[in-house]
Write a protein that binds this DNA or RNA. Sequence first.
DNA 1: TACTAGCACTCATGATGGTTGAGTGCCAAG
DNA 2: CTTGGCACTCAACCATCATGAGTGCTAGTA
Lengths: 339, 339
Amino acid sequence: MDERARHLLKSLIEQHIANGVPVGSRQLARDAGLNISPATVRNVMADLEDEGYLISPHTSAGRIPTHVGYRFFVDALLRVVPLSAESNRLLVHRIGFRAPDTEQVLHAATGILSELTHMAGFVRVPRRATRILRHVDFIALHEREVLAIFVTDKGDVENRLIRTEHPFGTAELAQAANFFNATYGGRPLQDVIHNLQRDLQQSRHEMDRILRSAMELGEEMLEEDQQRMLIEGEFQWLDLPELAGSERLRELLAAVRQKRDLVHLLDESMRGSEVRLFIGEESGYAPLSDCSVVSAPYSVDGEVVGVLGVIGPMRMPYQQIIPLVDGTAQLLGRALSQS
Amino acid sequence: MDERARHLLKSLIEQHIANGVPVGSRQLARDAGLNISPATVRNVMADLEDEGYLISPHTSAGRIPTHVGYRFFVDALLRVVPLSAESNRLLVHRIGFRAPDTEQVLHAATGILSELTHMAGFVRVPRRATRILRHVDFIALHEREVLAIFVTDKGDVENRLIRTEHPFGTAELAQAANFFNATYGGRPLQDVIHNLQRDLQQSRHEMDRILRSAMELGEEMLEEDQQRMLIEGEFQWLDLPELAGSERLRELLAAVRQKRDLVHLLDESMRGSEVRLFIGEESGYAPLSDCSVVSAPYSVDGEVVGVLGVIGPMRMPYQQIIPLVDGTAQLLGRALSQS
DNA sequence: TACTAGCACTCATGATGGTTGAGTGCCAAG
DNA sequence: CTTGGCACTCAACCATCATGAGTGCTAGTA
């Protein structure tokens, strides 16, 4: 592909992103800034179509980029623009400092992504596998109900109601908690569960039921975030002419609710440390075949623990979306790290 | 309105609920089971229209009920059917027993409401104003970060990160927590905050900052649920021909996200203890003017603490929705009460 | 008096067909 | 290699028309 073809492709995709309609040879010839006739442009376009970068919806429409075209565009032609001062200010304002509650920051990040991009924003909740158990509490709620509370070093708090066969006194529970804290406190959650599992094999104490339940709580904390993911702004898809009205939208919404495959896809993209794009069919996930996903992993205290990003139509202003997602990931990571 | 008119109105509304299209005189004359001609039916329909129960979208269409018509229908003509065994089984299975986590039960209830009705289901989170403070913990996360944890008698757990000027040791924090528990434990959250506010006026201790933050956490617990409400299944509205495509849907979605006015409306409906219906404009809330809300308050340990229900088109099968919402409220209340 | 049949009228819906204009592919000349 | 020209395609738009469901009104009937 020669320089001129690249220039035309770039111009065509930019125009299509801006207007959403197929781009014809005349308009492209005019706006590309090269002094060539529409006929010449048509020849180039025909070549680009042969090579799979473009496609025309029907004979007498202009052409639109394929996912291959978009891929070439973002890899070779795109120049990202720095985050606008306005957006940056907003980002910092909303997630720029450590909040009193993790959940709140995650929500804020999801919301701001969706707002600034006018697409659906998502945040994968931080992995807790490497979290350290800071504190455990067992609290008697009623006769035979004990509330177990786990606290990690990052300030995550999870709790669970445990029903017991026999009533436990406050002192008894405090003792159990003390034992638990002394034995397992300050160790990674994974280790705690592992050791607990082993230790419980041996003894067969009355208190075991509580400890066993506590272990299950710990397991749930690790398992839960296998699935959890915040997503917001799906309704913005209603505005998109390329999605709205069709059955595709329904599928997409259902798929997003289902989450399972989506989470899978995102976990893949947690491997690197850079912004990653899945354009159209690249995701290998049918409901997303008309969409692009822009994602970026975020790190807490130097370790990648999650991923966030946006889901929108293939036709999105990548040069702005990419730095935005990137910036959000940075800020979220910082907000969740200890100051 | 005589008996025949009532019968025709009932029949018309039932047909319209079933098919969603305006009902004409011929079809109504046939299906109503009375041996009268379409012409007679037309006369009756004209009367009903004059009285405001019906309206015709245009001259040569049939007629559809107005919100006044629906109101009369549900008040005077409707006979609710008992919950189907199938639905009941599902309900009990999903929310029929006390779950280890309040949040989970609330989510389950929202989800099942949406699934069974094919409309949007909502659950207002339980009020905590009358909750009793069971336990408080202050945990040192890092040098100058303390995590405060509140536990109520219903097993609600809330936490908050507090940044302090000076580092606190574990012992010091334990002492503060002990003091806190001894002084305020076992008292209603409202009292705790009130007293704390007073007590803090006097002393000016180093530890105050933590106590003050703890108080703020308590206040947040009370305030937070002023706003919180779970809602699920809005996307089901996309299937409804009467809503889909129009600008109304967008407004509705935006309004539901906004929540504020909605929450207001629902808090109204918490006064009674019965299922309540807001049909069309009755809600006095413009975005809902094409919708009906069926709500029922739910009680924990004999006290009304929240409300749940569904939001859908005016054209909904009330005779099934009402018992379903009612049943869900009962079950949720029981699931959240102590066994 | 209450019901019904008949009739003229309305109006959304859907099919038909013609026009327009944007856009293409191809070819031959520069 | 580029360009102007030309025939061709096709979605989109618009006007027209037929259809049929449904209405209101009136006059006749039980």
